[in-house]
Protein backbone atom coordinates (compact mmCIF):
# COMPACT_ATOMS: atom_id res chain seq x y z
CA UNK A 1 0.00 0.00 0.00
CA UNK A 2 2.72 2.43 0.94
CA UNK A 3 4.23 1.75 -2.44
CA UNK A 4 1.00 2.60 -4.24
CA UNK A 5 0.53 5.83 -2.33
CA UNK A 6 4.12 6.84 -3.03
CA UNK A 7 3.59 6.13 -6.72
CA UNK A 8 0.51 8.34 -6.78
CA UNK A 9 2.31 11.19 -5.04
CA UNK A 10 5.15 11.00 -7.54
CA UNK A 11 2.71 10.96 -10.44
CA UNK A 12 0.87 14.00 -9.18
CA UNK A 13 4.16 15.83 -8.57
CA UNK A 14 5.25 15.20 -12.14
CA UNK A 15 1.93 16.53 -13.38
CA UNK A 16 2.20 19.62 -11.22
CA UNK A 17 5.78 20.43 -12.14
CA UNK A 18 5.00 20.09 -15.82
CA UNK A 19 2.24 22.63 -15.33
CA UNK A 20 4.54 25.29 -13.94
CA UNK A 21 7.09 25.15 -16.74
CA UNK A 22 7.33 27.26 -19.86
CA UNK A 23 4.35 29.51 -20.09
CA UNK A 24 4.69 33.00 -18.75
CA UNK A 25 1.06 34.07 -18.94
CA UNK A 26 -0.22 34.68 -15.45
CA UNK A 27 -3.98 34.37 -15.33
CA UNK A 28 -4.45 31.72 -17.94
CA UNK A 29 -2.26 29.32 -15.97
CA UNK A 30 -4.80 29.12 -13.23
CA UNK A 31 -7.82 29.82 -15.38
CA UNK A 32 -9.37 26.48 -14.46
CA UNK A 33 -8.93 26.83 -10.76
CA UNK A 34 -9.87 30.38 -9.84
CA UNK A 35 -12.09 33.17 -11.07
CA UNK A 36 -10.16 35.29 -13.56
CA UNK A 37 -12.86 37.69 -14.73
CA UNK A 38 -10.85 39.02 -17.65
CA UNK A 39 -11.79 42.34 -19.22
CA UNK A 40 -14.22 41.92 -22.07
CA UNK A 41 -12.37 42.49 -25.28
CA UNK A 42 -13.02 43.44 -28.85
CA UNK A 43 -10.74 42.44 -31.67
CA UNK A 44 -11.21 45.68 -33.56
CA UNK A 45 -10.46 48.95 -31.87
CA UNK A 46 -13.31 51.36 -31.31
CA UNK A 47 -15.92 48.85 -32.31
CA UNK A 48 -18.38 48.16 -29.54
CA UNK A 49 -16.20 48.19 -26.42
CA UNK A 50 -19.18 49.69 -24.57
CA UNK A 51 -21.40 46.97 -25.83
CA UNK A 52 -19.20 44.09 -24.62
CA UNK A 53 -18.96 45.66 -21.21
CA UNK A 54 -22.72 45.83 -21.13
CA UNK A 55 -22.93 42.19 -22.14
CA UNK A 56 -20.44 41.27 -19.49
CA UNK A 57 -22.63 42.94 -16.85
CA UNK A 58 -25.65 41.07 -18.09
CA UNK A 59 -23.82 37.76 -17.96
CA UNK A 60 -22.43 38.48 -14.52
CA UNK A 61 -25.96 39.15 -13.32
CA UNK A 62 -26.68 35.45 -13.64
CA UNK A 63 -26.43 34.06 -10.14
CA UNK A 64 -25.11 30.72 -11.27
CA UNK A 65 -22.21 32.21 -13.21
CA UNK A 66 -19.13 33.39 -11.37
CA UNK A 67 -16.65 33.98 -14.14
CA UNK A 68 -17.07 35.06 -17.74
CA UNK A 69 -14.91 35.97 -20.70
CA UNK A 70 -16.38 37.85 -23.64
CA UNK A 71 -14.71 38.57 -26.93
CA UNK A 72 -16.40 40.40 -29.74
CA UNK A 73 -15.06 39.88 -33.19
CA UNK A 74 -16.04 41.27 -36.56
CA UNK A 75 -19.04 39.04 -36.96
CA UNK A 76 -19.42 36.85 -33.95
CA UNK A 77 -19.29 37.31 -30.22
CA UNK A 78 -17.91 34.62 -27.99
CA UNK A 79 -19.33 34.31 -24.50
CA UNK A 80 -17.65 31.75 -22.25
CA UNK A 81 -18.52 31.32 -18.63
CA UNK A 82 -18.01 29.13 -15.61
CA UNK A 83 -20.90 28.09 -13.43
CA UNK A 84 -20.78 27.54 -9.69
CA UNK A 85 -19.92 23.97 -8.85
CA UNK A 86 -23.25 22.90 -7.43
CA UNK A 87 -25.01 24.46 -10.41
CA UNK A 88 -23.23 22.18 -12.84
CA UNK A 89 -26.28 19.92 -12.76
CA UNK A 90 -28.25 22.72 -14.43
CA UNK A 91 -25.67 23.41 -17.15
CA UNK A 92 -28.10 22.89 -19.99
CA UNK A 93 -30.75 25.14 -18.52
CA UNK A 94 -28.25 27.92 -17.78
CA UNK A 95 -26.93 27.81 -21.32
CA UNK A 96 -30.46 28.00 -22.69
CA UNK A 97 -31.41 30.92 -20.43
CA UNK A 98 -28.25 32.82 -21.22
CA UNK A 99 -28.73 32.30 -24.93
CA UNK A 100 -32.30 33.52 -24.72
CA UNK A 101 -31.45 36.65 -22.71
CA UNK A 102 -28.63 37.60 -25.05
CA UNK A 103 -30.61 36.97 -28.23
CA UNK A 104 -33.50 39.01 -26.94
CA UNK A 105 -31.38 41.96 -25.85
CA UNK A 106 -29.06 42.01 -28.83
CA UNK A 107 -30.95 40.57 -31.77
CA UNK A 108 -28.33 41.82 -34.20
CA UNK A 109 -25.38 40.12 -32.59
CA UNK A 110 -24.30 36.61 -33.47
CA UNK A 111 -23.53 34.88 -30.17
CA UNK A 112 -21.56 31.75 -29.48
CA UNK A 113 -22.14 30.64 -25.92
CA UNK A 114 -20.05 27.99 -24.24
CA UNK A 115 -19.12 26.76 -20.80
CA UNK A 116 -16.27 24.53 -21.92
CA UNK A 117 -13.08 24.91 -19.89
CA UNK A 118 -10.95 24.61 -22.96
CA UNK A 119 -12.75 27.43 -24.73
CA UNK A 120 -12.57 29.52 -21.58
CA UNK A 121 -8.88 28.92 -21.28
CA UNK A 122 -8.24 29.84 -24.88
CA UNK A 123 -10.37 32.94 -24.55
CA UNK A 124 -8.41 34.08 -21.49
CA UNK A 125 -5.14 33.43 -23.29
CA UNK A 126 -6.35 35.43 -26.27
CA UNK A 127 -7.41 38.35 -24.08
CA UNK A 128 -4.06 38.34 -22.30
CA UNK A 129 -2.10 38.32 -25.52
CA UNK A 130 -4.27 41.04 -26.92
CA UNK A 131 -3.76 43.16 -23.81
CA UNK A 132 -0.01 42.78 -23.60
CA UNK A 133 0.30 43.56 -27.23
CA UNK A 134 1.66 40.30 -28.57
CA UNK A 135 -1.42 39.93 -30.80
CA UNK A 136 -2.44 42.48 -33.37
CA UNK A 137 -6.13 43.03 -34.13
CA UNK A 138 -5.82 40.84 -37.17
CA UNK A 139 -4.14 37.98 -35.33
CA UNK A 140 -6.71 38.22 -32.57
CA UNK A 141 -9.55 38.00 -35.07
CA UNK A 142 -7.94 34.97 -36.66
CA UNK A 143 -7.46 33.25 -33.31
CA UNK A 144 -11.04 34.04 -32.29
CA UNK A 145 -12.32 32.38 -35.43
CA UNK A 146 -10.21 29.30 -34.64
CA UNK A 147 -11.72 29.14 -31.18
CA UNK A 148 -15.21 29.55 -32.61
CA UNK A 149 -14.52 26.71 -34.98
CA UNK A 150 -13.38 24.56 -32.06
CA UNK A 151 -16.68 25.29 -30.36
CA UNK A 152 -18.75 24.34 -33.37
CA UNK A 153 -16.74 21.11 -33.81
CA UNK A 154 -17.84 20.07 -30.39
CA UNK A 155 -21.51 20.18 -31.10
Amino acid sequence: MVYIIRLMIIASMILMSSCSQGHTEEDSQLALMKATNPNPTVTEKNNGQDKVEEIEKKVSNFNEIYDAAIIKGKEATLVVYKVKHMQRFNMKKIEKDLNKTLEEDYPKENFTVSSDYKIFLEAVRLIERKNNGSYSDKQAEKRLNEILKMTSDMK
Binding site: M8, S12, L15, S18, L32, Y117, K118, I119, M154
Partner: peptide, 19 residues
Protein backbone atom coordinates in the same frame (compact mmCIF):
# COMPACT_ATOMS: atom_id res chain seq x y z
CA UNK B 1 -5.74 11.39 -11.08
CA UNK B 2 -7.98 11.09 -14.16
CA UNK B 3 -9.17 14.66 -13.71
CA UNK B 4 -5.58 15.87 -13.45
CA UNK B 5 -4.75 14.04 -16.66
CA UNK B 6 -7.72 15.55 -18.49
CA UNK B 7 -6.72 19.06 -17.36
CA UNK B 8 -3.25 18.28 -18.59
CA UNK B 9 -4.67 17.49 -22.02
CA UNK B 10 -6.85 20.60 -22.00
CA UNK B 11 -3.92 22.84 -21.10
CA UNK B 12 -1.28 21.51 -23.41
CA UNK B 13 -3.16 19.92 -26.29
CA UNK B 14 -6.10 20.75 -28.47
CA UNK B 15 -8.76 18.97 -26.53
CA UNK B 16 -11.96 20.52 -25.29
CA UNK B 17 -13.85 19.33 -22.27
CA UNK B 18 -16.15 17.40 -24.57
CA UNK B 19 -13.55 15.25 -26.26
Amino acid sequence: VGQAISYFYIYFFHFTEQN
